[in-house]
Simulated assay, not measured.
Amino acid sequence: MSASTFYREIGLEQKLPSLNKKLDKKIFYDYAVLNKKEKDVITKYIERMELTYLLTPSTINIQPFINDDFHYEGVMYITVRMREEATEKQVAVIEEVIHGALPNPVIIVFHLNEEILVSTCMKRLNKVNQSNVVLIESHRTAWISLHDLENTLIHDFIQSIHLTKVNFSNFFEFYKEIDLAVQAYQHMDIVGSFRVVKDDRKREQQQIVIGKINETEQEIAKLKKAMKKETQFNKKVEYNVKIQQLSNKITELTLELEL
């Protein structure tokens, strides 16, 4: 899926003219505190970076949301075309740099080999210096291909962030709904379906269970690695029993997500 196809599928292309304004990498060198590694990643792995759409009260019927914690006056859609040799590690670095450097909420659309990856991050004002923001938590989809649009889960995700489906009351609610959809996509493999949980209490409970599943999967991976190196048969059996127990635990936790 190309970035332009994505924007068309979510209704942006039909609603607003695209800006396609190139963002010079120097912007981040000058206005963000970057270490050498971050500068190298931006230099080596970004083919082109642009502000594709800018949503403000003057371009779309959505009101700003401003209080002591949040300052959401608009939403930026930034397209980042990555070079072919880029990996998930480089995407993660660029993702954090862009979200951290720009005070407005940003939807980053990474484009690589005809696939796109969508990244969001809720952010709040820094209590000490309100010209800076604090990143609350970033979320990202997996890579999505144009050929997978028939996939029900991908179709449901695209529809959930279509402009006709997102809350237009203010930019905070607008962005939060998109962030929740991206979060739901991120956890799709664990949850077993694309399910946006808008209730804060239920979502918090879901996150606790997902955290336990991730921890258990990491334990299993360590045991499998240790078992592979083990030469004693009885030790291998012990490892295998522990792995099975942890696998059963994951099954039980997954059932909690379906409640």
Rank of each mutant, 00 (worst) to 15 (best):
I243S: 00
R140N: 15
E137T: 06
E217T: 08
Y29H: 11
K236M: 13
L153H: 10
A3V: 02
A221N: 02
V182N: 07
Y72H: 15
L253S: 12
V166D: 00
I66L: 09
Q159E: 15
N67G: 11
P103C: 09
R48H: 12
K224S: 08
H187I: 04
I107N: 06
E177D: 13
I243A: 03
Q14D: 15
Y53S: 12
Q159D: 14
F70R: 00
M227K: 15
E258Q: 15
F168V: 02
P64G: 14
E150C: 03
Q130E: 15
L12A: 08
V93H: 05
Y72S: 12
L54E: 14
D179V: 08
E256D: 13
E219Y: 11
K228W: 10
G100Q: 07
E256I: 05
H71I: 00
K36G: 00
N240W: 02
N170E: 14
I210K: 09
R201A: 14
M188F: 08
S18K: 13
S18F: 06
T141A: 03
E177R: 11
G74R: 12
R203Y: 01
E9A: 10
L51Q: 09
V191I: 11
H71V: 01
L180A: 12
I154M: 00
E258C: 08
V166Y: 02
E47I: 02
Q159G: 07
I60H: 06
Q245G: 04
E96K: 12
V118D: 01
N248L: 07
T5C: 06
V182R: 05
K127L: 05
V133A: 07
V33K: 05
H187T: 14
L117F: 04
A142M: 07
L149S: 09
V93K: 04
L51M: 13
K15T: 13
K235L: 10
T251E: 15
V33G: 04
Y77R: 05
R81F: 05
N129Q: 09
V33E: 14
D199I: 08
I116M: 05
Q232P: 01
Q244A: 04
Q207S: 10
